[in-house]
Amino acid sequence: MHHQIVRRAGAERETLWVLLAAGVILASATLAVGLRAAPDAEAPLAAHLIDSRTGLTAAEQGLYADLKAAGEEIVALRTAAGRAPTPEELAAEALPPFAADPSAAARGGHTWTFAETGHEIAYAGVSAAPELAGSLVLRLDGHGADIWLKRAAEAPPAPPEDAALSAAGWKRIVSTFTAGVNR
């Protein structure tokens, strides 16, 4: 004897299967995301580095961008004239941030000095208002520009070597690229 129960017509079973399928998809997606998650790329910066995106004030970000552009200009002038231009000459050319204009005053009113050590040249700007923007050092060797920052109204050690700057509490500005960088 075989007992056959006639089941009611309806979408209950189909609904159950659809829900089960949705559950399986969600579970497998969660599993895949969990297993394949990218490692946390934001390694903390070394003590002598500071991030240009997150670590600088607005004025410092402006000065940093200007100094990077000015670094290329200075390298070109040095190649053309055979010697490095002084801050006064750069100010005369109205090259920011060396030019003494209202913008420079609003961004800390830096006083720029110049030092040359062999092949390497350095421009040091001592801030008059460290709460707006710290003091800055632009170092140029043959290969590129290094920019250092210290939030104090003080001149960098001479000569401005890496070790000496770090020891004196200066921080090199670097750009880190993480998942948050979208431009």
Binding site: M1, Q4, V6, R8, A9
Partner: peptide, 22 residues
């Protein structure tokens, strides 16, 4: 229609087949 499984009925409809299967 309920016997043919085409209606959303409540209660029991059972077919007792003499053999092993329907």
């Amino acid at each position: 229609r309920a016997l043919l499984g085409q209606a959303p009925h409540r209660g029991t409809i059972r077919l007792d087949w003499p053999g092993d299967g329907p």
